[in-house]
């Protein structure tokens, strides 16, 4: 099951890069993120899973679709024929590396209990890595202001 999810993540991530149609690419990114989120849940990392699905698959995809609609990106595209062979080559290379990694990594460790993990993540975030949180605020501010700048410019152009 994990192998299937990993393969799905990679396939859709690659498609998100290769597809010329922006909307299709964003939808592929969304599916890839959902697969990755499920993998996080299966690996007993629910916080990472929730962040992945809510922020990457949710918020960021909404922002992308908003930007595409604002910049008028819904035109019909002819997908170049070179995309598929490149993708297939990359897919097999990554799959090979991944499976070699999985076989070499040995048996998985015992999962920690959820309660233990909640307290651990809270401790790490607020007690150990508070400056990272300030850094994340900077990242969010930068992203929002850049978006406001682009959207404002679009309005001016109209």
């Amino acid at each position: 099951m994990t192998a299937f999810l990993l393969a799905g993540t990679m396939v859709f991530a690659a498609l998100a890069v290769f597809l010329k149609d922006m909307l299709k690419a964003v939808i592929c990114l969304l599916i890839s993120s959902v697969f990755l989120g499920i993998i996080f849940f299966r690996l007993n990392a629910p916080f990472a899973g929730v962040f992945e699905i809510s922020v990457v698959a949710g918020l960021i995809v909404v922002l992308f679709i908003l930007t595409i609609s604002l910049t008028g990106g819904q035109k019909s595209f002819v997908e170049p024929s070179i995309s598929l062979p490149i993708f297939l080559v990359l897919f097999f290379i990554f799959s090979y590396v991944l499976f070699v990694g999985i076989f070499r990594s040995g048996p998985a460790e015992e999962p920690v209990s959820m309660v233990e993990e909640y307290s651990k993540i809270g401790e790490v975030l607020w007690m150990g890595r508070a400056l990272d949180t300030v850094g994340q605020i900077s990242v969010i501010f930068a992203g929002v202001f850049v978006l406001l700048c682009v959207v404002g410019r679009k309005r001016d152009d109209k």
């Binding site: 850094g135 994340q136 900077s138 990242v139 930068a142 202001f145």
Partner: peptide, 12 residues
């Protein structure tokens, strides 16, 4: 993280 934040501001 701060390198990323500065990078995003620079794209802007």
């Amino acid at each position: 993280i701060f390198i990323e934040a500065a990078g995003i501001a620079s794209y802007g």
